[in-house]
Design a binder for these strands. Sequence first.
DNA 1: TATGAATGAGGGTTCATTCAT
DNA 2: GATGAATGAACCCTCATTCAT
Lengths: 198, 198, 198, 198
Amino acid sequence: MARKLVPEQHESKRREILAAAHRCFLRHGLQGASVAVICNEAGISPGHLYHYFPSKEAIVEQMADDYLAGLHAHFARHTQGEPVATVLLSELWSMEGWDDLAHCRILFELLAEGGRNDKIHAILQANSEGVRKLLAATITAGQQRGEVDPGLDADQTSAVLLAVLDAAPMLPLMTAGLDFESCRALITTMVGRFLRPQ
Amino acid sequence: MARKLVPEQHESKRREILAAAHRCFLRHGLQGASVAVICNEAGISPGHLYHYFPSKEAIVEQMADDYLAGLHAHFARHTQGEPVATVLLSELWSMEGWDDLAHCRILFELLAEGGRNDKIHAILQANSEGVRKLLAATITAGQQRGEVDPGLDADQTSAVLLAVLDAAPMLPLMTAGLDFESCRALITTMVGRFLRPQ
Amino acid sequence: MARKLVPEQHESKRREILAAAHRCFLRHGLQGASVAVICNEAGISPGHLYHYFPSKEAIVEQMADDYLAGLHAHFARHTQGEPVATVLLSELWSMEGWDDLAHCRILFELLAEGGRNDKIHAILQANSEGVRKLLAATITAGQQRGEVDPGLDADQTSAVLLAVLDAAPMLPLMTAGLDFESCRALITTMVGRFLRPQ
Amino acid sequence: MARKLVPEQHESKRREILAAAHRCFLRHGLQGASVAVICNEAGISPGHLYHYFPSKEAIVEQMADDYLAGLHAHFARHTQGEPVATVLLSELWSMEGWDDLAHCRILFELLAEGGRNDKIHAILQANSEGVRKLLAATITAGQQRGEVDPGLDADQTSAVLLAVLDAAPMLPLMTAGLDFESCRALITTMVGRFLRPQ
DNA sequence: TATGAATGAGGGTTCATTCAT
DNA sequence: GATGAATGAACCCTCATTCAT
């Protein structure tokens, strides 16, 4: 019985390390966060990290997958029977446990890294594809209910909307002194006008 | 006159190095591209680089500024007296000398770096602000000509549109097998529906 | 009696670990074989190894002693009343449970290590001395029987012959495509001509 | 002209480092000698070593090749027109710049390493083959002059003799209190009796 | 007996940068 | 202007070993 707890402890330590790594990646970047810094943040010795992960690379990949799956999971929770535009936009600004800036920065790290690292690229695509299909299904359902312009291709439209959602975190980075809440409302408006039957 | 050429040679060498650095940053990331690799790509010795730039940091900053100013310049050329949506979207897919993927990757590097590096953040904001103001002016002009919904706040709308433009390069990274041309048309449609008077 | 089995189990586990260590030393070298790899090969946990041996060093020493004692034991079995050359050469190529290359490699590891590690050096000398004395006795007996040149010093001759025997495994390492059987016969010839009364 | 010296300086520094590495390998073993120790012995900083060698592995390989080529070169100098046994044995104990123990230890390191490292194995074989062919030619010449038993196969005999030569350094390692000079004479006797016409 | 979590020093290697030439 | 030798801190990772369970 005490025995049975061991794998759970192992898993929970893994998660602690991933969380620590995540914080470090935000502070220093995927490449800039050293194993030493991550271990320090996680409160473990440098060697011990390798009892939980085979390499720093593996940590990055797991973190990427977990982070993106988190987005996915959150989004999936809201897709049942809600008006289309609301659902689409609920994802971005209501993720729990993440402040907006954190969200945006890790995503941009992953987009940058995904451009030159095949594994990250694959993780990015796999997770995006998951959300995108939910989005496409939501759009198709909206079209059947007459809420969405039937002339829009669900696959392409979902891809574009996904990009729009993920672009929102750029706003505070690029433009200072912006009222994020107003911009959020504006994006909601834009998506609403885009989707509604003409 | 021979004298006068020397500073020009200096400047032209600087540009060569920046171009080499840019290629390396695309291949390895801002942090992953080492000074040695950059010098190799530029065909100069490691020590010599420091006759042109005081540090690697300075190279990154100059490259960021040049790259974003390039976007700015390109965009500025097209803003006079053209229909609004055309203007807005001309930037993205017609940049000369850059293939789309390259474009997107450096931008994401900069967004990621900008989240934790104040100088890069400032460069990002300064350049974005330049483009955004052009955009806002275009929108205001459009509103006066009756082409654009007068209810939209020009400042916020321009910021959102800028984010949408910069989000487009995400598409091929996140979704495989996408027809980029169709998505481009879809974005044009979205922006058109967003802006037009209701 | 159940009690009495425990120390035997302990001893048998020790031998298993030594055998595993031996395989690892062949694969990676004395220094290159890590405790982790040895434990893995032996199927035990890293901590548990230290219930059987106080250190990796101790494993190396015990393995060296066992290995060399194995040579000794094998050789000792054949020294009674047989023709000298036969005795001398029986050792090398008929050792059971060892293929020739394995044999040579561990020996060379030990010779290399013995040059800078006093304990290994002592083990090497002690075991060699054991075999050498048997060899010297065989030679002296041969001299008394008139089979061996009485002008040869038994001590020095035995040392030289021991070196010759241990050198044989070099052959396949240094020369490719060699007929080992023919070389073995050639060494027999050499030793025969060396020892016989002139 | 000062320019032309640079590559020579580079080469001379390489040799210094190789010599330092060689001393360290003798003290600590091929695997046991750390890059830090080698750099310390060579009087350079840890990073600087990599301006001269791409890896520690490359240092080992170059050292192996140089060392074995040194044996080769020395031996080649003595093969013309001298009595066979003298030639064969001149190599071992008269090498300049090497004390006997050093000689033996590096050789055993290489034999051990050669058993599990293909590159070292190849270097070992290539160099041995060089010496062995000289030896075979010497034997054939001796057979034609009637100094050597015509019944001996030159290729196999040369291989066996090479092993015997390289085995000599084992003597002081395995047997304490041995008179090396007497053993040397004994080996000369053995080889002489082996080769002479029967 | 047996585990595997934990350590921290040290492994080989790369880094941005400096400086004599 | 231009080189590349030189630095030493820091990189990711592995090591032999200890200890609570």
